[in-house]
Structure formats: structure tokens, C-alpha cells
Amino acid sequence: MDESQRGPVHVEFRGVSKRYGQTVQAVRQLDLEIMRGEFLTLLGPSGSGKTTALMMLAGFEDTTEGEILIDGQRIDNVPANRRGIGMVFQNYALFPHMTVAENLAFPLEVRKLGREQVTRRVRNVLDMVQLPEFGNRRPAQLSGGQQQRVAVARALIFEPNLVLMDEPLGALDKQLREQMQFEIKDIHARLGVTFVYVTHDQTEALTMSDRIAVFSAGRIEQLSTPRELYERPAASFVASFIGESNRMSGTVLTGGENGGVAVHLDDSDVVLNAMSYGATLSAGARVTLSIRPERMSMLQDGATALNVIAATVVQSVYVGDHIRLVAVTASGLKFIVKLAASSSQLELNAGEAVRLGCGREDCLALDR
């Protein structure tokens, strides 16, 4: 979803905090707007506040201060069962004594829908999650992936316009988890309802989301599209948490036009040309440099780059689609480089001297 397609504000957190007792502050003064129809992921490590924020929106946790609004109406004082929100948990929470169809019908029967309408909606959501023949089975007769599909169907069956998902794929194996990511993304695209999704898995967040809110210590460090988050992290924490990166400390020697800076790396004779997309950095500023491993290349004889780093190979591992190279400079700086396997037919042995290269745009200077 691009900026021009994003709808009006659907959910809003205004100055929301959550404290447990006097000492633990799980969420701190959270301000967040979630747009109608978008897929927003709350991403962060354990204890960062992302799940607490979701549970306050769902109504399973009370706010300590601040307001939560849906379509401009305060809902933080409305009971969870009256908020009209679909919810998918990691443990599926299916009733074991009921069939799949009975599990799906339950939210509708609670809302006193007629039998004919219930039957039609059960059939429709089973088709939606590609389980049309499974209505008479019990949860114990289903695989983990099938149970997860039923849990998603149950969250959607009463046609909410807001669906919350709390680590819903955490219990699945890697291959099935990746498959379900694309299936949930496809369901979202077809329905056009608002999804708020919690995960600690960066790849999952990058794959599924329109926007990602990166949480740390109860606050949002950055709220951006997946591409913006990966290409231009606003802080050192975000750069280290989203994907792999080479991170080094240094001091700005000179600041240039349009964000270009020259940085002298600590305890070395290496100077790198980098870009600063955040604060304007002047000479003497302390920064953290971040370079993605796939943005570095190994320079063949005669080739050059704006940044050239002389290093020695420590390890070279063939990983299938790429070669993962670990190299160190004479002063002890370590670099991880991902080289496309097809273009790296030469054998790289430990102890071999190499020249590594990268451009200014590949090297981010982040204000510490």
C-alpha cells in the first residue's frame, strides 16, 4: 500500500502508557495512528511493549493513562467483547470438543445470527482459508497449519473491520510459517480490513506489512515502510534489529553536502565516505556506521570503489544463493560480506588478502 492509497485514520493511540506497579513501565506515552485498511506490524524484542500495546487495543489490558480511539470514538473504557475486533492468538484457542464448523459458528451464535446466515458464513470462511472439506473435523484431527487457518477464519467470520494478530505463526515450522505469511497477506489484500500484527520476527514483518512500528523499551523507535526501515534506519537500534549489518563506531572528519560525511573508524586508519539521512552531522560528531553485508563487494584486480577496505579472509561459507565471507582488517575490524554465489566462482581461502568495496549510499552514518 503506497501513501496515496492509505485511507483515513482508523485506530489512534493518544499518549497511552501502561505501568505495572511503581517500577515497570511497559508502554511510554505512545502516539500512533493506524490507517483504515493497512497492514501495520508492531515489531520488537521481548519486553519492548508491542504485545502490551496490542492487548490494550483489544481490551485485555487497561491503559494507565492516555486514550485509544477507533473511528474517532474512545474505546479504552469499552469492554473487550463490545469492541467488535477479530483476534488471532499464537495458541489458536480453539474449543477441542467442538468441530471446526462449530468453532467458527460460535462467535455468530453469541451474536444471535440466524442458522441460515451462520451456515453460509461458515462455508464462506472455510473457502477463504482453503479448508472447505474440514468443517466436521475436530481441532485434534488438524495439523498446526490447519488449526492456524481455522483460528484466522474464526477471527474473520463476524466480518470485523479490525483484526489483531499476536504472534500467530510462532508455533509453526519455518516452511509452513513462510507459506502462512503469504496466505494471511493475501487474505488481507482481498478483504481490505485493517490488520494489526505483532511479531519479533523481522523477516515476517518485512514480508507482510504496509508499515512497521519498531518498538524498544516501550516506545516506537521508527514507524516506516519495510523498504524505508531497511534502507534508511533512523537509529542504531533499528539498524541492528532489522536484518544483519556491519556496525562500527567512528568520528566525523568532515560533513559534506546533501548528507555526505567522511568518518574515521575508531582504532584504525580506515576512513569511509557515508550518508547521514537524519540529523546534520558536523566534524567531531560520534556516529555508528552501518553497512549491509549484501551492499559490500569484493573488488577484483583493477576494480575500485569510493570506499576500499583492505582485509584478510577469516572464513568463507557457501550458503546456496550466496557466499558468506568474514574478513578482518589489519587493525581488527571485522566485516561480513554476502557475495552472489553465481558471480563468485573463485575459491576464497582463510588467510587470503582481499579488497572490499562499497559506495557512499551503502554506508549509513547514524547519530548515536
Score class of each variant (00 low, 15 high):
Gln22Tyr: 14
Pro132Cys: 07
Phe335Thr: 08
Pro293Ile: 05
Glu159Ala: 14
Met35Lys: 13
Phe95Ile: 02
Ile212Asp: 00
Asp269Pro: 05
Asn307Lys: 05
Thr329Phe: 06
Thr329Pro: 03
Ile157Asp: 03
Val313His: 05
Phe158Arg: 08
Gly278His: 11
Gly302Pro: 00
Ile291Leu: 09
Pro45Arg: 14
Ile212Trp: 08
Arg19Val: 13
Tyr318Glu: 10
Ala365Ser: 01
Glu361Trp: 00
Ala283Ile: 15
Ala217His: 14
Gly145Ile: 10
Ala205Tyr: 10
Arg292Phe: 09
Phe95Ala: 01
Ile309Tyr: 03
Asn307Ser: 05
Leu272Gln: 07
Ala235Asp: 01
Arg227Lys: 09
Phe89Asp: 02
Arg74Glu: 00
Ser344Arg: 06
Asn161Thr: 15
Tyr92Asp: 07
Ala274Thr: 11
Met165Gly: 04
Met165Cys: 11
Arg36Glu: 03
Asn81Tyr: 14
Gly351Pro: 04
Asp2Asn: 14
Met275His: 10
Ala262Phe: 05
Val152Thr: 10
Gln141Ile: 14
His322Ile: 11
Met87Gly: 01
Glu102Val: 15
Gln147Arg: 15
Met1Gln: 09
Asp301Val: 15
Val16Gln: 01
Pro96Lys: 00
Leu126Lys: 03
Ser236Glu: 12
Met56Ile: 12
Phe335Leu: 10
Met55Ile: 12
Arg115Met: 07
Asp367Ala: 11
Thr203Asp: 10
Thr51Ala: 11
Pro107Cys: 11
Gly320Gln: 07
Leu289Ser: 05
Ala105Phe: 09
Gly284Ala: 02
Ser4Ile: 12
Glu116Lys: 15
Arg36Trp: 12
Val122Leu: 08
Leu156His: 04
Leu306Lys: 04
Asn103Tyr: 01
Ser276Pro: 04
Ile70Glu: 06
Val317Arg: 08
His264Lys: 14
His322Leu: 05
Val198Arg: 02
Phe89Ile: 13
Val308Ser: 13
Ala341Val: 12
Val313Ile: 11
Arg211Asn: 04
Ala305Gln: 07
Asp31Arg: 04
Leu156Trp: 07
Asp362Leu: 06
Glu109Asp: 14
Ala26Val: 09
Arg368Ser: 09
Ile75Ala: 04
Ser276Lys: 03
Met55His: 09
Ala353Tyr: 05
Leu162Asn: 03
Ile220Asp: 00
Asp173Pro: 11
Leu339Arg: 11
Phe39Asn: 00
Ile336Glu: 02
Asn349Glu: 04
Leu42Glu: 01
Lys185Val: 08
Leu164Ile: 13
Ser316His: 13
Lys334Gln: 15
Leu131Tyr: 02
Gln5Cys: 11
Ala213Val: 06
Val78Tyr: 05
Lys338Asp: 07
Val319Ser: 11
Phe237Ile: 14
Pro293Lys: 07
